[in-house]
């Protein structure tokens, strides 16, 4: 087990290094000039050139990469061209909204999708199963921003139940924090409910056909116990895998939701940085995302040991 953990940690380094090189090169080859963006509309070409020199963008790409990677290895992600703030500080400021949104989204998704999936498998072929399968296709298909506008119109503007936009930090009060987060989380969770419900249904359905289920039923166990303790527990590995991938995707994939609900999270920071060609911020955020993906995948792999005792590393 320890060897496995050490091996996985060691494997993280080349992954992050490859990501760093790729991101750096892609950004330098992409069109757009941060200096021209920073200078403003009425700036002259000479002024832009001076800003470019000030940012160190007139140096050879290899030299720029050397400086950046040297700083990263010392734990310094650099300073944003645009905001003149440390990239690590920017990520720190934006992490809480994204984490809060992602966590509540996954909690809602799991709380709704897993029971629905189990029920659909239990009532396989019935009206509930068919309805759930149909609705899950709808859940996949409706774009997030369309759903967001519908929910805002109905829940916030018509019924006046929840705020239209914004984010309140948890330190400003838990109730306010939650009120601002419910609508975006529900919006975002729909697609994950659809995904997790389908995977749960398929896994539980497969488990329900196993001999140990027949045995459990023959022993006269209540159906709920058969479903939860025997079927769901044995179907957990693929479900947890999908939930894990969902969390990883959520951290980087909340851009649209953050835009529509005006949540100052990491997704919004990434889009702003890309639009402004804020190279240090883009590089820093992508490195952070990569690290998060690797970490989450690692934790998922570890969880298999607890979910299925047959798995050994």
């Amino acid at each position: 087990m320890l060897t496995f953990i050490l091996r996985r940690i060691a494997a993280t380094v080349p992954v992050l290094l490859i990501v760093a090189v790729l991101v750096f090169l892609v950004l330098r080859l992409a069109p757009g000039d941060p200096a021209a963006i920073l200078a403003g509309d009425a700036a002259s070409t000479e002024q832009i050139a001076r800003i470019r020199t000030g940012l160190g963008l007139d140096r050879p790409i290899l030299a720029q990469f050397g400086i950046w990677i040297g700083n990263v290895l010392q734990g310094d992600l650099g300073e944003s061209f645009y905001y003149k703030t440390k990239v690590a500080t920017l990520i720190g400021q934006r992490l809480e909204p994204t984490l809060a949104l992602s966590t509540l989204t996954i909690l809602i998704a799991v709380a709704v999708a897993v029971p629905l999936g189990v029920l659909a498998a239990w009532r396989f072929g019935g009206w509930f199963d068919r309805a759930l399968m149909g609705l899950s296709v709808l859940g996949f298909s409706v774009p997030v921003f369309v759903l967001a506008y519908i929910l805002i119109y109905v829940v916030s503007l018509r019924l006046g139940l929840l705020p239209v936009q914004g984010y309140q930090r948890i330190g400003d009060g838990f109730w306010t924090f939650l009120r601002h987060l419910v609508l975006p989380s529900v919006t975002l969770s729909v697609i994950y409910i659809a995904l997790i419900a389908r995977v749960t249904r398929a896994s539980v359905l497969e488990a329900l056909g196993e001999d140990y289920i027949r045995t459990a039923r023959a022993k006269g166990l209540p159906e709920i116990r058969v479903l939860v303790h025997h079927a769901l527990a044995n179907a957990a590995v693929p479900i947890v895998t999908v939930i894990g991938i969902g969390i990883a995707l959520l951290i980087g994939g909340v851009v649209v939701t953050e835009s529509v609900y005006a949540i100052p999270g990491l997704g919004r920071l990434t889009v702003d940085a890309v639009l402004a060609r804020d190279f240090p911020t883009i590089q820093g955020v992508i490195l952070f995302f990569s690290f998060a993906y690797v970490l989450i995948n690692f934790l998922i792999d570890l969880s298999y040991v607890f979910l299925d005792p047959r798995i050994r590393y």
Binding site: S156, L157, V164, Q165, G166, S259, V260, A262, I263, P264
Partner: peptide
């Protein structure tokens, strides 16, 4: 200054709701 609210429709929604 609310710098996060940049979606045109969301801006109008927030104004109409008094946020």
């Amino acid at each position: 200054w609310n710098l996060a609210l940049r979606d045109a429709q969301a801006q109008v929604n927030a104004l109409q709701k008094g946020e």
